[in-house]
């Protein structure tokens, strides 16, 4: 069989899905910026097959082509392959404080915990949905609540969202007696309001103080 038709067949057989998952796995293993040639060499896969599968995965947005057009990275859509474990709802006393704050400010109010250094969304504001729950819980660089995890001594973190232009977030920490970070509460608002944080910080800190004995 000539190589061309062999490639054609392989990419169309049911095995194609398996191959596609191998390619996805290989991009994850070799890291962002990996090229099509590196994938094909590393998997021992014919180049034309590798290119076809990479293009298919990019078209479906499980992979992205980086701005230089030759490197690949995982697309945000890959997280749809992962399952999210739902967290238990917070105690009623905690919900009361959070709901009270939601009634007082025109902004999204989100509460998270940091057990084991991992951000866990405890109570996301149903009226102001988080831009990307999976992303925010996995990647501390994309949210103010993640920023608290990165800077253990911060009194508050203000950040304009790198995910959704035109959104910003203010987060304050909730610590235990020894000063260890336990939880965080955040307001999602506009960059303009976040730039003048004093009035919002005052209500946030007040809520954080009321939450501290309930969470720490």
């Amino acid at each position: 069989m000539p190589p061309a038709s062999g490639v054609e067949l392989r990419a169309r057989q049911p095995k194609a899905i398996q191959h596609a998952l191998h390619v996805l796995e290989e991009v994850a293993r070799l890291g962002p910026g990996v090229t099509a040639q590196q994938i094909s060499t590393s998997l021992g896969m014919p180049r034309a097959t590798a290119y076809r599968l990479l293009n298919l995965l990019v078209q479906e947005e499980y992979l992205v082509r980086l701005p230089d057009l030759s490197g690949f990275a995982l697309g945000s859509k890959v997280t749809q392959l992962a399952t999210l474990v739902p967290t238990a709802p917070p105690p009623r006393a905690v919900r009361r404080v959070v709901d009270d704050l939601r009634g007082r400010v025109r902004a999204g109010v989100h509460l998270v915990r940091y057990d084991g250094g991992i951000l866990q969304i405890v109570d996301a504001d149903p009226d102001f949905a988080l831009s990307d729950e999976v992303r925010i819980s996995r990647d501390p660089h994309v949210s103010a609540l993640g920023g608290l995890l990165l800077d253990a001594s911060a009194g508050f973190v203000s950040m304009s969202s790198p995910i959704v232009p035109g959104r910003a977030c203010l987060a304050v920490p909730i610590r235990d007696d020894r000063g260890a970070l336990v939880a965080g509460i955040a307001l999602a608002t506009t960059p303009a309001r976040a730039a003048e944080p004093a009035p919002l910080l005052a209500v946030l800190r007040e809520a954080a103080e009321r939450l501290e004995p309930l969470l720490a």
Binding site: A28, L74, R138
Partner: peptide, 21 residues
């Protein structure tokens, strides 16, 4: 799917991007 699971649980930073195209 170990490498993929690890990459999803702990994303490797991909710098050089922007919030807007």
């Amino acid at each position: 799917m170990s490498a993929l699971e690890r990459a999803i649980a702990n994303p490797e930073p991909v710098p050089g991007l922007d919030a807007e195209s």
